[in-house]
Amino acid sequence: MTMSSTAESAAVLTGMYAAEAKYLAAGGPGVASFDLLAPFFAPDVELHQADSLPYGGTWCGHKGMTQFFVMMGEVWESFDMVEQEFLATGETAVVLTQVRARARATGRELSFPILQAITIKDGRITEVRPFYWDTKAIAEACASPASTD
């Protein structure tokens, strides 16, 4: 196992976020292929989302990442990363992203920050841990309106 250099980590992150933007612009899950993103993630990657989110839990491997993006596509009508700052790079990278998103179920628009701790080994992302400012607000914006039968 080799440690990732700062330059290598920055290149992996820049490439992955560009591929993610291309993936989302192409229509995301069901339209675009996860193959755009796969080269940036280790086969055994783990993504840990807050349990209180509609797409919460731990997503493992390329199959899990594919399922995660399908779930994100079901939850969000749009999910734009409008501003990013790489606060640290190396084997552990920290990325601050400002997101503007519209929930599919309610049509509500939100703007919120996500701070991600990302582990990079051997030129691939092995773990992602996003931290949201307010998971309750996100969950509420994404909740289906109550039925009024």
Rank of each mutant, 00 (worst) to 15 (best):
V45I: 15
S78Q: 09
G123I: 10
A50C: 08
F86I: 15
A143V: 08
G15L: 07
L13H: 02
A93P: 06
V31A: 14
C142N: 00
F112T: 05
V95Y: 03
A18K: 09
K136S: 12
D35R: 11
A88Q: 15
G73T: 09
F69T: 04
F131L: 11
V128E: 12
G90M: 09
Y55N: 05
W133M: 15
M81Y: 09
V82G: 08
M16E: 14
P130N: 09
L87Q: 07
G57Q: 06
T89S: 08
I114D: 01
E83N: 15
Q67R: 10
G61K: 01
A18L: 06
T148P: 00
D51L: 14
D149R: 14
S5I: 00
G30C: 02
M65C: 14
Q84K: 13
R102D: 06
I118W: 05
A143R: 13
G90E: 08
M81P: 03
A32G: 02
S5L: 03
V95F: 03
G15M: 07
F86V: 15
V75W: 05
A141Y: 04
L53N: 05
G107Q: 02
V12E: 03
I125L: 07
T106A: 11
I120F: 10
A103S: 14
V45R: 00
P54D: 00
D51S: 15
W59C: 01
M71H: 10
A18Q: 13
A21F: 05
P145I: 10
R104D: 06
G90R: 11
A38H: 01
L115C: 15
S144H: 15
V95D: 07
L47G: 05
A141R: 01
S33F: 11
L37M: 11
R124Y: 03
T6A: 14
G61P: 03
E109R: 10
G30K: 02
M72L: 15
P39S: 03
Y17I: 11
E140W: 11
Q116L: 06
C142M: 03
S147R: 12
A25F: 12
D44I: 00
V70F: 06
A139V: 09
L47C: 10
A50I: 07
D80E: 14
L13G: 04
G57F: 07
A19R: 05
T66L: 04
A10H: 05
G123D: 06
E20G: 03
K136N: 10
S52E: 15
E91V: 03
T58H: 08
P29D: 01
Y55C: 02
A19N: 13
T106C: 10
G30L: 02
I118E: 04
A141H: 03
E20N: 11
A139H: 11
T135G: 02
Y23C: 10
G123W: 11
G15K: 04
A137Q: 12
T89P: 03
E140V: 13
M16P: 00
E74V: 05
Y55V: 03
R100F: 02
G64K: 00
A105E: 09
I120E: 04
E20K: 04
G56H: 06
S5W: 01
S144W: 12
T66P: 00
I118N: 04
L53A: 04
E74T: 13
S147C: 14
Q98L: 14
P145T: 11
S9H: 06
E91H: 09
A50S: 12
S4N: 08
E127F: 05
R124G: 01
D149C: 08
M16C: 12
S78P: 07
A93H: 01
A103H: 06
